[in-house]
Design a protein around this nucleic acid. Sequence first.
DNA 1: TCAGATACTGAACGCATGTACAGGATACTA
DNA 2: TAGTATCCTGTACATGCGTTCAGTATCTGA
Lengths: 202, 202
Amino acid sequence: MIRDEALRLFAERGADAVTVRQIAAAAGVSAGLVVHHFGSKAGLLEAVDQHVLGLFDAMLAELSAGSGADPLAPESSGSLAEAVTRHLPADSPIPAYLRRLLLDGGDAGRQLFRRLFTASQAALDALSAAGLAARGPDPLVRAAFLMANDLAVLLLRDHLADVLGTDPLSTDGMTRWTAEVLTVYTAGLLPPHPTEPEEGIQ
Amino acid sequence: MIRDEALRLFAERGADAVTVRQIAAAAGVSAGLVVHHFGSKAGLLEAVDQHVLGLFDAMLAELSAGSGADPLAPESSGSLAEAVTRHLPADSPIPAYLRRLLLDGGDAGRQLFRRLFTASQAALDALSAAGLAARGPDPLVRAAFLMANDLAVLLLRDHLADVLGTDPLSTDGMTRWTAEVLTVYTAGLLPPHPTEPEEGIQ
DNA sequence: TCAGATACTGAACGCATGTACAGGATACTA
DNA sequence: TAGTATCCTGTACATGCGTTCAGTATCTGA
């Protein structure tokens, strides 16, 4: 499928760096056909954007539905990264495309971010209502902070994998990351007992 | 100066989306001169990369030196965003360029990220030694988490400004953001008293 | 069977790009 | 004042881009 190959290449290199001819070659067709089906490269890009936004909406819906069912599970803190890891194969181009969408994507990116922010606010409110978290002195900023922390994993995936030695979106890496994040969110950064020294790890 | 105009345009639109002719026009010279001075567009890009990396190193050095002097100050938690805000004019293209460097920049980006990660580890160690934070069960991940949270402000600046109504790298926005982050890092997300309901704000 | 829609190709076009180059202007040295 | 290095311009060129288009194959329905 032309659109899937375009999605993969756009995610990998960015839409500007990919030529219509490369997409056509990857899909095993001629460049003319790509334009014939989508009108133009911009049309193709928009089709891919809409496709990914659709997938994402489905994921987000399932995520918030799931958190209603079991708000005590760690993933109900609204972790997009975890939802991505759980619903998508390890080599899916979707995470990278979401990244591009948030960073380059003009209007689609803003739409996506706003939807995420609303979801993050709702998640924080739900946790607060359940007594599992406080909305804090500045709930808007707290919701944004939690969302930004979550997105950072997506945006910095490659760099983090580089320094940590584990892809943070793999099952193992996610577990490791989530455990640490949960520790901080539960008790903050402070040591449990100020007089008792920490064990030195690494 | 040609290099400064290139820096500004690269930061704004990304290196690939800027032409040598645009840079030349912005600097008030001919396209030929740009190539004459820097050999090629790639050479210019490398020169700008090195320039920004140099500026950044100076900032990082001053940051860690400052944290040694007063490790109790909020900014000594190693906040890159705050260092950027403090040392650079509000309309500086440097934050946006750092963003591009981390996201697109191949080798320079990786270098930058590694340097940041090392600094983050050192900051966490220093805070731990001072009894102000724990290295946690997985210090590597904790250092990465703190750094990623910090970088997220840089990477998502525009989107955050959009939903919050304040540029998080402005003085006001930074104050607001830092206060909330410090609250979470100090006490976690949990409400101070489980039975006592939160005040509803917003 | 046959007409018409649809899928598809390959060549061509205009355009913008990075770069090369020949030469003009300017400044510095002797 | 003459020579020379440096700064700088405008033109030109090859390349690769998105897109157009005429034409061919393949499928669909009556």
